[in-house]
């Protein structure tokens, strides 16, 4: 299962960074309520391997809660890895302050060989912003099952707002990490929030859907012409590099046949899910027809959880 939990912000709180809102710092009660909702869903779905994105540790915006420990204490997982993506003692912008956000792998079986692979930084921002901004990464761990079978679990979160080739460079690095672990002969299962839509998606431009009040796009007078993170047209083929190498839990032809069923994100909590950004891949086959996007969980975060069944022989 993969899920971007949005640091326990939920969808009712309009965060300044991605929801046209004016909130930056959440109260402890708000974060705990939202985390409790997420945890209830995790315990309900009951996955063996859980890949989470946007997990906060002691960040000011999420009331300094250690979300790894909070989740471990309230779920059935006995093992977990955390890899930081965005760590700064103090971010002097918008009152963000102390930040530590990252990806996490939870497992019911023992984890070992935890590795954090940093991904390229954004190259479309100024030096000051780059210094304080997120460095996305790939987190991996070796899972050992009770019968001795081993496989690698790999989690990533690619840049949401880059407007140049940053995300493509991150994707290539991510694929190289998957390749290196796959070459060990062990099965790998990987997933995360790629911030990319499937190569055969019909809608590739969400600028107007995502526009905040007062924002204008697509006119020659508009600068920028497209909203950051909402214009996928130039990136539409990038994920082919992954589809060509690994098995997806959601084959492209299945996705094409009923796209809204597989949407996993919407930046506006008042709209239905309207794009697919969250994926599961492996170097072994998934069980046909088991890919599920948990669209019914709309209040927990701005992403829907994605699950699939995966089997492999020793």
């Amino acid at each position: 299962m993969t899920w971007n939990i949005r640091f326990g912000c939920g969808v009712d709180i309009l965060w300044f960074g991605d929801a046209c809102g004016d909130r930056t710092v959440l109260y402890k009660k708000e974060v705990e309520t939202n985390l409790d909702g997420l945890i209830a869903r995790i315990n309900q779905i009951n996955p063996d391997i859980l890949l989470l994105q946007e997990v906060d540790l002691y960040s000011k915006r999420s009331a300094y809660i250690d979300q790894m420990q909070y989740i471990l204490d309230r779920t059935y997982f006995g093992y977990g890895y955390y890899g930081t993506n965005w760590k700064s003692q103090f971010i002097p912008s918008d009152g963000i302050g102390k930040m530590d956000e990252g990806n996490a792998i939870f497992s019911v079986w023992p984890l070992s060989e935890g590795t954090l692979n940093p991904l390229p930084l954004r190259t479309d921002v100024d030096a000051l912003t780059k210094f304080f901004y997120v460095r996305e990464s790939v987190l991996s761990g070796l899972v050992t099952m009770p019968d001795g079978k081993k496989f690698y679990a790999i989690n990533t979160h690619l840049s949401a707002y880059s407007t140049d080739y940053t995300k493509y460079r991150q994707l290539l690095k991510y694929i190289s990490v998957c390749d290196s672990l796959s070459f060990t002969g062990n099965p790998i299962v990987t997933g995360g929030d790629y911030n990319l839509i499937p190569p055969n998606a019909d809608i590739t431009d969400y600028c107007l859907i995502d526009a905040c009040p007062g924002e204008h796009f697509h006119s020659h007078m508009d600068d920028p012409m497209h909203k950051e993170g909402s214009y996928f047209t130039p990136e539409i083929n990038w994920l082919n590099a992954f589809y060509n190498k690994y098995e997806s839990s959601l084959p492209l032809e299945i996705y094409k046949s009923d796209q809204p069923k597989y949407y996993s994100h919407s930046s506006d909590p008042n709209l239905d899910w309207n794009r697919s950004l969250d994926y599961l891949f492996a170097n072994r086959h998934f069980v046909n027809g088991t890919h599920k996007v948990w669209q019914e969980f709309r209040k927990e975060t701005d992403h829907a959880a994605v699950t699939a069944l995966w089997t492999f022989k020793k």
């Binding site: 300044f16 909130r23 710092v25 002097p92 912008s93 918008d94 009152g95 963000i96």
Partner: peptide
């Protein structure tokens, strides 16, 4: 210091 953007050491929501 409670302002949006760079230099905002405090969130303007307060």
């Amino acid at each position: 210091l409670a302002k949006k953007g760079t230099g905002g050491l405090i969130s303007p929501e307060f």
